[in-house]
Design a protein around this nucleic acid. Sequence first.
DNA 1: ACCTGAACACCGTTCAAGT
DNA 2: ACCTGAACACCGTTCAAGT
Lengths: 220, 220
Amino acid sequence: MPRRPALSHDRIIDAAVRVADRGGLTQVSMRNVGKELGVEAMSLYHHVTGKEALLDELVNWFFTRIELPDPRQPWRRAMADRAASARTAVSEHPWALGLIESRTNSVPALLRHHDTVLGCLRRNGFSVALAAHAFSAIDAYVYGFVLTELNLPFEAGEGVDEFVDQLRRRVPLDDYPHLAEMITEQVVNRSYDYADEFEFGLDLILDSLQARLLADGAAE
Amino acid sequence: MPRRPALSHDRIIDAAVRVADRGGLTQVSMRNVGKELGVEAMSLYHHVTGKEALLDELVNWFFTRIELPDPRQPWRRAMADRAASARTAVSEHPWALGLIESRTNSVPALLRHHDTVLGCLRRNGFSVALAAHAFSAIDAYVYGFVLTELNLPFEAGEGVDEFVDQLRRRVPLDDYPHLAEMITEQVVNRSYDYADEFEFGLDLILDSLQARLLADGAAE
DNA sequence: ACCTGAACACCGTTCAAGT
DNA sequence: ACCTGAACACCGTTCAAGT
């Protein structure tokens, strides 16, 4: 009678996700994942080819977290919802960004995703070419935004004040007049929230796409 | 009489860049950087605090590679040039993307950069708020585009054919009809080049920004 | 079939020792 | 001042051995 459930493919991936969520990508070692399951590292090799394969599966797991666009929604709403879902997925599992680099090969969940998004656009009057443009632009923006958001030297919310204090102590702000102007404006005007930037930038792209879509329709 | 120049801060960073360019971020170890300089790993600690500090300096080195926007250019041209420069910098040193995640603290070259960009926008009639929006959107797009470009499962140029062949062998393309449609269109129409997507998406953002800028001006 | 101990070739880092 | 050898606590992975 085993005290803990037997090892399995899925249990290993779940354990790896827990380790990554807790301590970041650097903590994901075969030894640590084994420890998470109360097992020696070597046991994992009976269920997983190796560490590279495990990381590939982590990427796939991550893409299953992003909601597929709802085919019944109008395209603009569907794209905005998908972007929001991708964004929350990355902020809950920021280690995914570090993995995505050069690891998109053989990620089934990603293919499923791409196909559904393209279908949504095509069904809404996008030409193949415009759908490709739209997909590329939206995807780049969403990933890039989360990447830059992760890099903000302060945490979301009220950390801005402490950040400004720290910065003032370390950096001669007089050397960066425009940065200083923006920071003081942000601090004075407490309504600023970097998270709002996400929708603003996305709307820039969606507005232009809408215009291109109408122009295409008029040209036919 | 030393056969090779003495170790120094800058020589260590240059060596680390060479190692990263050659073998990616995983190859950047204190031992390998030492080997690149014909020196034991332990010698590096006399010039660099440790590996984390070395990686911080690599990020800073990377940002010095991106051209600052030319203050004499109109804003749209300046932003497009900067975006192109950032893009080529990342494709020459793709390891930088993996580093940028949560390492933006204390990167002087990045502050210089941000300030110059903001200055360019402000001088061209952007309000502080619109300049912040513009900066955030463009930056996110540029990084995100290169990130997704790195993930393309084929190399730039003629690799598309081989990729389609490979994909056909591994994946049931019938399950992904819209993906199949796009791929066949791309292969039939040989003029497709993913690199063209970069400018198209950037123009989507810049077009909308221009419209917002005009609306702001009209409102005053 | 499933798990493990010992071993190998790697890491980053410290510290006492050499020149 | 600058470099190093040995040591420590980590990696991923193999392989023969245990149940």
